[in-house]
Design a protein around this nucleic acid. Structure first.
Lengths: 121, 121
DNA sequence: TATATTTGCACCCATACGGTTGCATTTACA
DNA sequence: TGTAAATGCAACCGTATGGGTGCAAATATA
């Protein structure tokens, strides 16, 4: 079974998961509550992300925490290098925009274990 | 059926197709001969690439020519921007490179019809 | 210790993927 | 006009995806 980074980011839910787990390390139920799919489904997506190296897991007591390894995306960046001359202006503009934000580091904000048990519904 | 650029590049064969069709415009049989899978399989991959905008087709007589639209990859580049601070040096160089180009438009270079019917074997 | 929380395990389901083969259709060309 | 080449169409196959449910096991906590 092929399991590379390109396949990891192929699914929109997984891209969202990656975004979420880049901002903060979360345990399974916490992250599952942010998404409209079942915990089991989240587990499967996470497994794929782990298998392709975009996420790592770490057990703490009975909980299992997940966090992103966004450096792995450099494989995608490397592949895209060959197409750099085709990338558009909009890309440059976005790039400039993001440059203004560059000082803010992705801090893991407040919640840790606290809430995370506010079931929706 | 989800059909975006991320899914387009998820498969290694499709990435290879994209590379091939970026270098030159080719008709179906020509491109199929470069790959170790059947013509039908190539057709299916091309259909996916077309549906997500990474390739365009153009009929000429009884032949159908395909060429890449690598500019579409800027959607991927845009998404990756948010992870720029995690990417390695090489990617930053890409970024610098792009900045120097800001005026140049992505031009489609030389080869057009010429070869493309040189059967191997 | 009893109970609640978190995760894991084992299925189930429909559909998409990646590949194939066989045959039909269209179009050049000798 | 007949034949060969290029493509299209349809069906099939095994496995992966993306989703679900139910229940067991492990571990906190009242």
């Amino acid at each position: 079974m092929r399991r590379d980074v390109f396949q990891g980011i192929a699914d929109p839910t997984r891209r969202a998961l990656l975004g979420r787990l880049t901002k903060e390390k979360l345990n399974l139920t916490s992250v599952a509550e942010s998404f409209d799919i079942s915990r089991q489904s989240v587990t499967k997506h996470l497994r794929i992300l782990i298998e392709c190296g975009l996420v790592t897991e770490q057990k703490e007591g009975r909980e299992k925490y997940f966090k992103a390894q966004p450096e792995k995306l450099s494989e995608v960046a490397a592949w895209m290098e060959q197409y750099r001359m085709f990338l558009s202006k909009s890309y440059d503009r976005l790039d400039d925009y993001l440059k203004t934000l560059q000082t803010k580091k992705p801090k893991n904000h407040e919640q840790r274990k606290s809430q995370s048990r506010n079931k929706r519904k």
